[in-house]
């Protein structure tokens, strides 16, 4: 091998190794970061509650939320994906989890907010088991890194009971 190729080889190998160590280090330091997320989410109104033609129950909700996800950001966080899931149990299914609303937060300054939204996705059951059903709302977040390990977290925020009859 000529001296030039030799030197190039050494240089590239060293640069790649250094970059790999930095990436691993950045991701490893996330282990010492423990987020303290605060959130308050409640159902303001059941806008629509009916049985679809397919026989599945369908619910459209209005949610009121105040969320502070600033602590979910570390220096290795590219964005945080946050969503609110409705979780409940039925006779057929041991666990149902349905995302109602989600948001991509791309920087820390937008991670604290209060808002009222109609749910982005309908709460649709497998079957018609929702009348009078107690449903838990859980806030989940997914910290997506600049490089390295992805971090998932969740906190239960509230629970509510659906009406006994369709609207």
């Amino acid at each position: 091998m000529s001296p030039f190729v030799n030197r190039l080889n050494t240089l590239v190998t060293f640069a790649v190794l250094l970059l790999a160590i930095l990436c691993a280090g950045a991701s490893f330091l996330d282990c010492f970061h423990s987020p303290a997320v605060q959130a308050n989410v409640e159902v303001l109104k059941v806008n629509r509650f009916r049985r679809q033609l397919t026989g599945n129950d369908e619910v459209l909700l209005t949610l009121n939320m105040s969320i502070d996800l600033q602590s979910a950001f570390s220096w290795n966080t590219k964005q945080v994906f946050v969503f609110i899931a409705a979780e409940y149990e039925t006779e057929k299914n041991a666990f149902n989890q349905i995302s109602l609303w989600d948001l991509v937060i791309s920087d820390k300054h937008h991670a604290k907010f209060e808002t009222q939204v109609t749910s982005k996705y309908l709460l649709i059951d497998q079957g018609s088991n929702l009348r009078g059903k107690r449903v838990d709302l859980v806030l989940h977040w997914h910290a997506m890194p600049i490089t390295g390990r992805m971090i998932l977290g969740k906190i239960p925020v509230s629970s509510f009971q659906l009406p006994k009859a369709y609207t």
């Binding site: 994906f81 969503f83 899931a85 299914n93 666990f95 149902n96 989890q97 349905i98 995302s99 989600d102 996705y121 497998q126 989940h140 997914h142 992805m150 998932l152 969740k154």
Partner: peptide, 24 residues
Amino acid sequence: AGEIVVFNVDGREIPIVHRVIKVH
């Protein structure tokens, strides 16, 4: 829900990377 999964669909060669939004 919330996890990002890689899945194969019958009749498609290339696997897809998307996020789970509903689980039963």
